[in-house]
């Protein structure tokens, strides 16, 4: 009986998770011709090459920088919005809906919406700059700006989710704690630091790990906004895997990179399981 119930899920997992995972490791051991008709076994040498390649290091580095840019900022903003909207004011429901609204935006929608802001010719920001007789800023065409621009899109797109999740965490903080603290003369800031932060920390930690793992999966924004450039400034690792596999027709290299990506994500997930159990204040 149990088998019958589990079978559908297991079939799907088998076909599309377990098998391809193994096959990806296997693919990493071969060097393929551009037309896929000739493969040569090179063994773990290809993995070694990938691990040693400076392009790959660059991708990892860029992904790391990107993560550092998006996760803390995203969490801080989400927390800020959640605290703001947690107040008992009339009409706050409208604000809550507004703050959650970006959950409805997909990667494609968010990216295109930001083009309305960032484009050198039609973007709002550059229109304002032009009004002041300035030179347009090429947000997506300059290596310095490009990663920041993509990070901004990502943070904005994730705002809705982080807001909703952290708000829910906030709601679990009992109000009497705030009451007694206020009676004791604690300022708003002290109440925030001593009560809110610790009690919301499990949620924050959850958000931290989820956002980090998601940031290592970033693809759509890159594809739509920068194509990995300029000068590989936004060549995040999933994009690099995609280009290797489907543009340079190097599935072996792509597979090797994918396996490394998996190991990193695995490490992060393990971190979540450990940290959430230990460091969180359950008081």
């Amino acid at each position: 009986m149990a088998l019958m119930l589990l079978l559908p899920s297991l079939v799907v997992f088998g076909l599309f998770v377990y098998y391809p995972f193994g096959r990806t490791i296997w693919l990493g051991l071969f060097r393929t011709s551009p037309f896929g008709n000739r493969t040569t076994y090179v063994g773990f040498e290809q993995y070694a090459d990938v691990l040693a390649s400076s392009d790959f290091h660059h991708s990892l580095w860029v992904t790391l920088v990107f993560t550092v840019m998006t996760v803390p900022v995203g969490l801080a903003l989400g927390l800020g919005l959640a605290v703001l909207a947690h107040q008992r004011l009339s009409g706050v429901g409208i604000y809550r809906t507004i703050f959650s609204s970006t959950v409805a935006t997909s990667v494609a929608v968010a990216s295109l919406m930001f083009i309305a802001l960032l484009s050198p010719s039609v973007g709002l920001i550059n229109q304002i700059i032009k009004g002041f007789d300035g030179d347009p800023i090429y947000f997506l065409q300059r290596p310095g700006w490009a990663l920041i621009a993509v990070a901004a899109v990502t943070v904005w797109q994730n705002l809705g989710v982080t807001f909703i999740v952290i708000s829910a965490g906030l709601q679990s903080v009992p109000d009497d704690l705030y009451e007694s603290a206020r009676l004791d003369g604690a300022s708003a800031w002290m109440r925030f630091v001593d009560i809110t932060l610790p009690l919301v920390s499990p949620t924050l930690l959850f958000g931290f790990v989820v956002l980090t793992i998601t940031s290592f999966q970033t693809f759509g924004q890159i594809d739509l906004l920068t194509g990995g450039g300029p000068l590989d400034a936004t060549n995040l690792i999933v994009f690099s895997i995609y280009t290797e596999a489907f543009r340079n027709f190097n599935p072996g290299v792509a597979a090797a990179q994918a396996v490394v990506l998996f190991l990193i994500v695995l490490a992060l997930t393990v971190v979540q399981l450990k940290l959430v159990e230990r460091r969180v204040f359950y008081g």
Binding site: S9, L10, T24, L261, V265
Partner: peptide, 24 residues
Amino acid sequence: VVFVGFLATLMVPSEVTIVANYDT
């Protein structure tokens, strides 16, 4: 074991298996 097997699928993001899944 099966439970852990299910859990394991959470660890493998779909981006990792795109090449193999495409072939499938």
